[in-house]
Amino acid sequence: MDNVALKKTANELRKDIIIETYNAKSGHPGGSLSAADILTYLYFEEMNVDPQKAKDPNRDRFVLSKGHAAPGLYAVLSLKGYIPSKDLKTLRHIDSYLQGHPDMKHTAGVDMSTGSLGQGISAAVGMALSAKVQKKDFRVYAMLGDGELQEGQVWEASMFAGSHGLDNLTVVVDNNNLQIDGSVKEICSPYPIDEKFKAFNFHVINIDAHDFDQIRAAFKEARETKGKPTAIIAKSVKGKGVSFMENAVGWHGKAPNEEQYKQAMAELEKNGEALA
């Protein structure tokens, strides 16, 4: 996919995030929108995955350690063909398989149930280790929030991954700078994030999370890096793509009302037309 096609796909993904959270009347649009470009790149360019062979033991794995960005994950899984797009409107509804946080038991394409922060990265480390033990060459990707870095388990997992040189593991930090209570810097600063991962023996790449040239180059570099896991620190805008949600802490875990829904969709439609 060229950058224009990727941008168009990411724009569709953003529309789906708005549709999901509007119909759910709850959920997490802000951190889903900030992750949308990287999710698009992972599923449409980077990862060796095929919805027709969703359980292929040799497939690449993705763990959404920031499980609250489930609307973003479901949107990309729908666009990729794992789940029917009509089901997106059932997010968080009673008896829907699209749970508030990803449930691997019931949702095709979800490689790990997540929701309790800090735990997904350990599971990703386990998957990467299994590839080493079984001498397989699949790769493992984990996406973390920057607020999530406050969980101690992230650093337990990072110390192990760095110590064991798990070069088949790529960790992406969606660095949108906001968490529920405010800015990550004011609450309990994870900065400098890059230096911390470097200290844990990661190869570290800083990028703009919304620039596909930088995203492409970073994942290529991660693939070529041997003997170390890679951490991509992706500086992002929370709520990216919807003007009134951008960099607004209030949109971490709130759904748009009807009026806001219409405005968000109109903006994204316009953005899509501009890409055509």
Partner: peptide, 9 residues
């Protein structure tokens, strides 16, 4: 957590 990841593979 690592055990969980291993079990899925």
């Amino acid at each position: 957590g690592i055990a969980a990841g291993l079990s899925t593979c």
